[in-house]
Design a protein around this nucleic acid. Structure first.
Lengths: 229, 229
DNA sequence: CGTCCATTTGAGGTGGATCAACCCTAGTGG
DNA sequence: CCACTAGGGTTGATCCACCTCAAATGGACG
């Protein structure tokens, strides 16, 4: 069934509230190198690329949300990152994607051919520098996430998650989570039940408020920061 | 926790500066760019740099072993990577180290100033490409490790660890682990007791043999690969 | 030969997983 | 417009893999 939410107002917020330390990554690179960027839409739950698949494109989320993940042979899943409007994903310096990517909700992306970027990086050292910086940002997130997965308690993980999502997608003090409890669990190395219990406990403590399971208002960021260890 | 500008001369012992000839990742970059590399020694347990400290140098292990880690405020530690002879570590595209680094045993490193590398990358796009590729390799390891920390059982983690160390430091079918059980636990998100019990169980099953707690020979890699999920 | 740690092993506790209802709500069709 | 339904979410009861605490053992080094 086709879906009407090709409109950018459906899921994510098309106006990215992040103050970029530099200009928009894609714009910086594509503008500088005069590359062609196209747009493309994926429906909810649609695969964008698979693990170990050749990396033909690099993507930027325009609207919607994407999960990057790895699977074990028996189906256990680890989500390495959520990609929200403005985020670049699928960037590889090699020829294959190391994680799979799927649209969580209906999602529009901008994309450029990886080869074009590689070519631009070979011509313009500023482009090369930017690509390196983007990979470094991903690495930093992965390093923080290893600490979370290896050493934090369930409540600390959920507190970290809420603060991350608040920072990345809160609008007017409220966040509209695009992902379900199972996705959150697979991101945090927990079960969906444990995530739900932690959120319920925070709700009971007045740390957060709900307007529907995925609409959350943080009422006490300071106590979340303390839990975050 | 000394200032990074003093780091190499403050703690370790300087050796002779050299221009390195060999064809390894570091030499590929430093040799290509004609950079000066110095050698330096750290004693067992000595800090090489701290978390969030300015990144003045990039390092390559010549001999010995290094651990990179993050700490929580109460002392819980997550080791993100072990660096063994040949490995480059401390490479940052920003200005600060994201993890702390310590010598596990007496260690000799080769080092170059980060600014020199940055300069070389600004002049030679091949150098820039190589730096990006090295960061990508670190990211790949971190992504694999997130899957381990978030979703693997204790036995699967230990099996993965043994296969990784076997690949990276086995000589004549035997590996001499430089790190203690606590380090292994902090790498795998387990306690040292759980690591010890898993190794004992593998020993009892004949999957591995000991010659002292840190000298291990793998007798059945295939069964380890199966456990690795 | 004795001291000091690292390691192993044992016993018991527990945080989060598992299994199982139940509830809520958005979407559907009447 | 409302009743129905399906899938996501919550909550409860129980389990168990791993942690914690404790003690014994072993190996390296003076």
């Amino acid at each position: 069934m086709l879906n009407a939410s090709l409109s950018p107002s459906a899921g994510g917020n098309p106006i990215n509230p992040i103050v970029h330390p530099v200009a928009d990554p894609f714009a910086a690179v594509t503008g500088h190198a005069g590359l062609i960027a196209s747009e493309f839409c994926y429906k909810k739950e649609e695969e964008i690329y698979g693990e170990d698949e050749p990396a033909e494109y690099v993507y930027q989320v325009i609207s919607g949300a994407v999960r990057s993940y790895k699977l074990l042979s028996d189906g256990r899943r680890q989500i390495g990152a959520f990609h929200l409007p403005g985020d670049v994903f699928g960037l590889e310096s090699g020829t294959a994607h190391r994680l799979a990517a799927e649209a969580i909700i209906d999602t529009t992306v901008r994309l450029v051919k990886r080869r074009s970027l590689e070519h631009a990086a070979g011509v313009d050292v500023q482009v090369a520098r930017k690509l390196w910086a983007m990979t470094t940002a991903e690495l930093r997130h992965a390093e923080d996430h290893m600490l979370l997965l290896g050493r934090k308690t369930a409540m600390e993980r959920v507190a970290t998650f809420l603060l991350e999502m608040d920072r990345r997608l809160a609008v007017a003090g409220m966040m509209a989570l695009p992902m379900c409890r199972r996705d959150i669990g697979d991101y945090l190395g927990l079960t969906l039940e444990t995530v739900s219990r932690a959120l319920s406990q925070l709700h009971a403590q007045g740390v957060l408020g709900f307007s529907g399971a995925r609409q959350i208002v943080l009422r006490n960021r300071q106590s979340l920061r303390k839990m975050d260890a």
